[in-house]
């Protein structure tokens, strides 16, 4: 009995050490992830000179909203903002309209040629024409430097199709389809009136994925968009955050110093206004993640 007690004590002792390490490491991880983001927020409300002097650690120092005022004056930023919102909304609608029906059709075991068609999709994940041939194809279709190049040509996302297909495959009971078919329900009607309403979780997740990638898209615009009026937000903020990095550093005197100060401050504000909207989408969709959608990703 005594030895059993000592084993038990040892186990709980070990578990205690385990918990101390576990929560200790977890808190460190939490700080490493959160603090740099928090720093951007407080820096955006602080006097840049204070930031540069290492005075900003936990709360804004010499509170100011000059950075946000400064971005109000940059009209190209707001054009980019408007464009990105349009691209994101339209791109998500088109993405869902293209990928979800295809995923449903591919989930049907009675689809003749299912294997071949699946291969037709999967193959493009591993091999493609490459940048230059694709570039000229876009030109040949007359889509270069147009609004549509941002939402249409690259809207097929095979990875999303696989996730949705697996979801349909595992969560729509065959019995419903059989019963509907006996009642004379056609495939299209079944898809729109029965399959879709039962699949809100996967729709939400695919919509989130598409919206995030549209909001953050940068490469296609870099290659295919020249017109300033069509440039998405990411391309505009790249100029502010990265390319113009060196430019603000030139010149002396008070005016130049002030400009440098403002451009520094504006960077923090730009980071925040360009990131907050898309982060706000996530909590609305989070509850759907538990509903078996991620399992689909594993199997796929």
């Amino acid at each position: 009995m005594a030895s059993l007690g000592s084993i038990k004590r040892q186990v709980t002792w070990n578990d205690l050490i385990f918990n101390i390490i576990l929560y200790g490491i977890s808190i460190v991880i939490l700080l490493i992830v959160i603090y740099p983001l928090y720093f951007i927020i407080i820096a955006s409300f602080s006097n840049p000179t204070e930031v540069a002097n290492g005075k900003v650690w936990f709360v804004p120092s010499q509170f100011t909203v000059d950075g946000y005022k400064e971005i109000m004056r940059h009209s190209e930023l707001w054009t980019g903002y408007r464009n990105t919102i349009v691209y994101t909304v339209l791109g998500t609608v088109i993405g869902l309209a293209v990928n979800i029906p295809a995923a449903y059709a591919l989930s049907r075991r009675d689809l003749v040629g299912r294997k071949l068609i699946t291969f037709y999709f999967i193959f493009t994940m591993f091999f493609n024409g490459g940048l230059i041939p694709t570039y000229f194809t876009i030109r040949d279709f007359g889509l270069y430097d147009t609004f549509w190049v941002m939402v249409l040509p690259f809207s097929v996302a095979v990875y999303h199709i696989i996730i949705a297909r697996t979801f349909f495959d595992s969560s729509l009971p065959q019995g419903i389809l059989d019963a509907a078919q006996i009642d004379g329900c056609g495939n299209l009607r079944f898809f729109f009136q029965i399959a879709l309403p039962l699949s809100k979780a996967v729709l939400a997740v695919i919509a989130l994925y598409t919206a995030v990638s549209q909001w953050n898209a940068y490469f296609n615009a870099l290659v295919y968009i020249r017109n300033e009026d069509l440039k998405p937000l990411q391309l505009v903020i790249r100029n502010i955050l990265i390319t113009n990095q060196a430019m603000a550093g030139t010149g002396d005197g008070l005016a130049a110093q002030e400009a440098r100060r403002l451009s520094e401050l504006m960077k923090y504000a730009v980071i925040i206004i360009s990131t907050v909207p898309i982060m706000c989408v996530y909590p609305f969709v989070q509850k759907y993640f538990s509903q078996g959608v991620m399992i689909g990703a594993i199997k796929g």
Binding site: A102, A105, T137, S155
Partner: peptide
């Protein structure tokens, strides 16, 4: 239901392969 995805993939992924 498959047509839009198949067509877009053909136009913008398979044609570039040519």
């Amino acid at each position: 239901l498959l047509l839009p995805a198949v067509a877009l993939l053909f136009m913008f992924t398979y044609i570039p392969m040519y």
